[in-house]
Nucleic acid binder design. Structure first.
Lengths: 196, 196, 196, 196
DNA sequence: GATGAATGAGTATTCATTCAT
DNA sequence: GATGAATGAATACTCATTCAT
């Protein structure tokens, strides 16, 4: 069982890499098994269907990120740094992405969308918690926290996942974040470093 | 020529309806020609490929909306009503959508995305112009206008294209819009009516 | 009528060029009419079918070559020069071929074959006549003239239509020609200049 | 593996028969799978494309013939009989051809051509070897052996693959062969029996 | 656990030809 | 003479999935 689980994890990683670099639709089961060096039957022994593979791939990613985020939340870091940590853990690290801008390539819209939705679902409550902590500590001041957090995440995803954003985009985003959360001007300037 | 053009417009409308209701990928060329009652050859007489059809369908939509928006801008309406008009003209009218929530259905992600991108490209400059007008008239006060407008559009698209948004979402969005554009609280309350 | 004939000749030349440079099978009627700047209907006004076009294209070529060959035969030139002239008039001139080796390209096999067959049919009797003249004048000495001429033409076509023949190929061919026609060694050395 | 290979050989034979009797271009993949009683997917499991199938079909033929020819060369037969054997092994046996003159039918030009080219490539060196042997034994006397052999093969293919050759064609060919290889008159008369 | 042969519905695209105007 | 809209049969190829061994 251990062995089987391990094998499955490997397959998931391979599928993940291929889905991202070529797009889910453009990656055939044949491609995957060839890359993995296994037989068709073996693939279907581990996965019910190709779609389920995608689901599991995404689940795997989200899980890892949620875990990291959870650790940050329960740490002793000051609130701004917690936010910084969580937000940066969300963005796909350069090592994970085989190709620049891969996620935004048109053939990846489907996957990108699924990921974003699920990620938002997972991260909004976590970030909300931190914002509440921030309110208690006097950093922020606002109501409807989850709604505000969600909108910030939405804008962040849409704006900064692409490669062609400008310094002005960042400035406006920071301004927006501060005003939306009721923070003092300049409080969230640290975001700039995170995004660049 | 007249004849051919007319026919093409009809085909485009049929394709549009089908792409939206069943999704681009799930609509085969066979489906389209059957619905249109034409032969395969006729379809390819008018369109180079299925993808080109999608491109033209989207172009057609955008064109119409840009036209409407343009008229509103050059009208004598007060600034807030201009914004209201443009924003509401962007959202797909209920008559156009054969099925509730069609655009957000997963099989429509690709089309939805293409539309959103192109629509944003087209609408941001128009809305920016209006905001500038609003600044001159003392309604708003801000810099980086296109960036702010774009972010507002992004949030609006992402939040209100789905069906499951709440009153709180609207409130936060209004708050965000006012703060982002430097408007007085309550100025943009009219948005609520637009979205509901 | 004159006008129509002229038009048809133009179309034939265009078709000829296209068939040779892209291959008969790879040239669609659409390609031809686009190149010629005429409508589909016009094409079918002049040609019954695409295949008939090919037939006429080939006929046109052969006709021209047969005419040239005929003139040479009835001229006052010495026999070896007559042969030289006919053989060299058969080989597609460089100006006619838009692309080097076009006729031998795999997509042209069909056309090449049709041409070769028809050309052989046409040229064998003409050349046979010249060979007979050569016999009467003591240059050659053999029976079964048409068969011999046909074989020589066959080898010539197959060997020299390609681009990768050698000096040795030429030497052997000359040797063969002389022996086949019963000519004295060296008599037909002039062929070398013709082929090179 | 054994199983798969066997199946593939069967499919190749079926394809071979169909390509020859109906022509490569006129044989659709659908035709083949229907004849073979397999599913489309199975066909594409064994062959990458229709063209690759043709390539393999030809490869299979050539291979068989080369093998036979090789055996003959290394046998203890006298040189003339070796040549006879090789040449006759090249010509498609009556059993293989479902239809008289199939190879020369216009729809088969492409295949015929590919076969002829590859066959020539393969057979010329083998026959050259035999001719050299013949020279050593005093049967023949000539230089440029491969060139001569190739030309003889060319003429043989072109003349005798069709059905409408005459006794005179045979006589001229024998004369030509003897002279081209420097053999004594009558030495190669045995060819007549081979061809008829 | 693992294999790989077999499936077959599904899809986009091509192209010669016709014919009413 | 000329047009161009309309046709529809034909075709190669893909790919997720199954299952006996």
């Amino acid at each position: 069982m251990k062995k089987g689980e391990k094998r499955k994890q490997e397959l998931l990683k391979i599928a993940y890499r291929m889905f991202i670099s070529r797009g889910y639709e453009n990656t055939s089961v044949d491609d995957i098994i060839e890359e993995a060096g296994i037989a068709k039957g073996t693939y279907y022994y581990y996965f019910k269907s190709k779609e389920q593979t995608l689901e599991e791939v995404i689940g795997m990613m989200i899980e890892q990120e949620a875990e990291t985020a959870g650790k940050i939340v329960s740490s002793a870091l000051p609130v701004p740094q917690k936010i910084a940590g969580i937000v940066s853990s969300i963005r796909p690290s350069k090592e994970e992405l085989p190709i620049e801008g891969a996620l935004m390539r048109p053939e990846n819209i489907i996957m990108h969308n699924k990921i974003r939705r699920k990620l938002t679902e997972t991260v909004v409550p976590i970030l909300s918690e931190v914002v509440e902590e921030g309110i208690r500590e006097g950093f922020f001041s606002c109501d409807c926290i989850p709604e505000r957090v969600r909108m910030l995440l939405t804008v962040s995803n849409e704006t900064f996942d692409e490669e062609n954003f400008t310094e002005r985009d960042i400035s406006v985003f920071i301004d927006m974040a501060e005003k939306l959360l009721g923070a003092k001007p300049g409080t969230m300037e640290f975001i700039r470093e995170l995004i660049r």
